[in-house]
């Protein structure tokens, strides 16, 4: 079996938000007007933000004696995801390779999953998505489609939930390419856009079930930790502590 996982080395992350931009273009995440962003409606599948967010936990100190940390945050693709358990129509589900998928053609927009996800990685389309000018002509044409199924970077209708998919369309393309070239699929061929782009080379991607893979080796590192381990979700995004 395969279990796709990501490792993010916080020591190497420079908080440039290159991953966020790469994700936006790979996955056609709709931009929103600044006024809407101020209302908290921006859609950032891959967010980079100061951590912790809870002011009671922050020990940042007074300027100039401050300590500031940033954390890049995709979907954790939890082993035990609270989001899929609450979805009433199976619009979100975990596939056998551990990727938590989201079907825009099925979602009824009840936002139960957005409420249930402890990481806040799920976003709702409050308006019809719009791209200005030429941006419109440069959307990623990839889409995953079938009867009653619409996933991946396909432009979402208003009123549905979306989230990071580990660029599942790239997995499909890599598998298809291997098939066309009549060779075995090599996990190295599959990389989400954020991993590929990362300025500090802080991100690694691979199969957690393969004990030789980079992610498996890093998982055993004493620096390895997961976000909100106490909520029992068992994320497959593993962070490497700073310092």
């Amino acid at each position: 079996m395969t279990r796709w996982a990501m490792v993010i080395d916080l020591d190497k992350c420079v908080a440039c938000q290159g991953c966020s931009i790469a994700c936006r273009f790979e996955n056609n995440t709709p931009p929103v007007k600044p006024s809407e962003a101020l209302k908290g409606r921006a859609i950032r599948w891959n967010d980079v933000f100061p951590f912790p967010t809870n002011p009671l936990e922050a020990d940042a100190g007074e300027y100039p004696e401050t300590k500031q940390r940033y954390i890049p945050r995709p979907c954790m693709h939890c082993e035990n995801p609270p989001c899929i358990k609450v979805c009433p129509v199976q619009a979100t589900f975990k596939n056998e390779e551990g990727i938590v998928q989201q079907n825009y053609a099925r979602c009824i927009g009840c936002r139960f999953c957005t409420v249930a996800c402890p990481y806040g990685v799920r976003y709702f389309n409050w308006q019809e998505p719009e791209w200005e000018g030429t941006l419109n002509e440069h959307l990623n044409p990839d889409r995953i489609e079938g009867p009653g199924d619409l996933e991946g970077p396909a432009v979402r209708p208003k009123g549905v939930v979306e989230k990071c998919t580990f660029c599942i369309q790239r997995l499909q393309k890599a598998v298809a390419r291997a098939e066309a070239e009549e060779r075995d699929f090599d996990p190295v061929d599959y990389q989400p856009a954020c991993v590929q782009t990362c300025t500090g080379k802080a991100r690694y991607f691979g199969d957690l079930d393969d004990p030789e893979s980079t992610v498996s080796l890093f998982e055993k590192s004493p620096r390895a930790f997961r976000l909100l381990e106490e909520v029992g979700t068992h994320p497959k995004v593993i962070y490497l502590r700073e310092g």
């Binding site: 358990k85 129509v89 199976q90 099925r106 009824i108 009840c110 209708p157 009123g159 549905v160």
Partner: peptide, 24 residues
């Protein structure tokens, strides 16, 4: 609940695609 749905047109999915694990 219908006001609250992003896609009220898919309301009946609750019955056609209902998933027993969901409290909803």
């Amino acid at each position: 609940i219908i006001y609250d749905l992003g896609r009220p047109d898919r309301f009946l999915y609750l019955f056609t695609f209902g998933r027993m694990q969901s409290p909803l």
